[in-house]
Write a protein that binds this DNA or RNA. Structure first.
Lengths: 196, 196
DNA sequence: CGACTGACAAAAATTGAAATCTGTCATTCG
DNA sequence: CGAATGACAGATTTCAATTTTTGTCAGTCG
């Protein structure tokens, strides 16, 4: 966009890249477009990011981290594990559903980025599962939940809810029964956590 | 392939179509190829299937029905609901994993067909959920499971296990920890079914 | 001196003309 | 007479020529 006299930082490049991706989509967005948006030559962008792939990876990571941070707040709250778990799952579903529904094109763009960067996604998933682990662990300590292997149980909870947070299933999130199905699933999972 | 003197039936066309899809893949397989394999003109194929899409849909349906029928056997067995549920889920996971692992190219072909025929897939899913419903219903009647709404619970069980039967997650099925994660998930679900 | 530029080679994407495929139907074949 | 054919129009795909993009680096500028 407007050339700027500010220093060229990785941060500013990432912002410009997001903007370019939003405007042109993942197929058309080029490094030259990003450079043009910043009023610099594309060589300067390569000073901060070794390849176009690295640049896209950094954008993907930023995007996923925003979700992570929001949920970390819920996981850390000081109250009963069941309530926190229910709210955490609901917050994850709601956040994803809004991202998918509010701006489908931008969401499609991030779906492409996610497909390109499985390593980043893996780290993100590990992060979310760790958050679940903290909630489940608290629940076990307080006697609300039963689990012989907290990390494995946390992973099972994450897996059980894939349909309501994995972008691969985004298509289903709009359909009318989705909320009821989500509620039934969370109830089933919570009952399972409470033990036999 | 070899021309034949037999009558041209929908069944024979479907077999030839499967063969052509296996050989050329979903992108290259044409109606002309199918006709050539049968030793007839492509016009004759159109006598049995109105469009290429209808032909592919029929192939997809056949393929999904084979899985359905195998599982229906387990659902109908005369024994405890918990064992049947565990075996049914394991059979579904194992069957899918083999299809994906044994012939990845053919599996990719069917993934494409599945993407083209969401209506067929929806019916297939409804069928599987109904089978689960029978098992869960039996369990509730026998006092082994607790559920206020059997169809909704069956759907929740199906949803909870998506990661281990939906082709969208096929990529994960090969990884070493998959079996342990599957076991942990089924345990969680079964505990949930047994009630709080 | 170090951030930035822009010309360049190699790789990838786009374009449009030619070839192929889909779906129809008047005609042939048994 | 009903099943099958093959020529055909319109839609889609292919392929090679052309353009654009990526990534590098010797050289400029402040």
């Amino acid at each position: 966009m407007a050339p700027s006299t500010e220093t060229l930082t990785a941060e500013r490049i990432l912002e410009a890249t997001e903007e370019v991706l939003r405007r042109y989509g993942p197929a058309k967005a080029t490094v030259v477009d990003v450079a043009r948006a910043l009023g610099v030559s594309h060589g300067s962008v390569y000073r901060h990011f070794r390849t176009k792939a690295a640049l896209r990876e950094a954008v993907t990571e930023r995007w996923l981290d925003r979700t992570s941070r929001a949920l970390a707040g819920i996981a850390a709250e000081d109250r009963g594990a069941e309530g926190r778990l229910r709210d955490w799952c609901a917050a994850l579903f709601t956040a994803k559903r809004h991202k998918a529904g509010d701006d489908p094109e931008l969401f499609a763009t991030y779906m492409v980025l996610i497909g390109e960067n499985s390593a980043v996604v893996e780290r993100h998933v590990a992060d979310l599962v760790a958050q679940l682990g903290r909630i489940v662990g608290d629940g076990v300590r307080a006697g609300a939940f039963a689990s012989a292997d907290v990390p494995a149980t946390a992973r099972a909870v994450f897996d059980a809810t894939v349909r309501f947070h994995d972008p691969a299933h985004a298509r289903d999130w709009a359909h009318p029964g989705a909320d009821a199905e989500f509620a039934a699933l969370v109830d089933l999972v919570v009952r399972g956590l409470k033990g036999a």
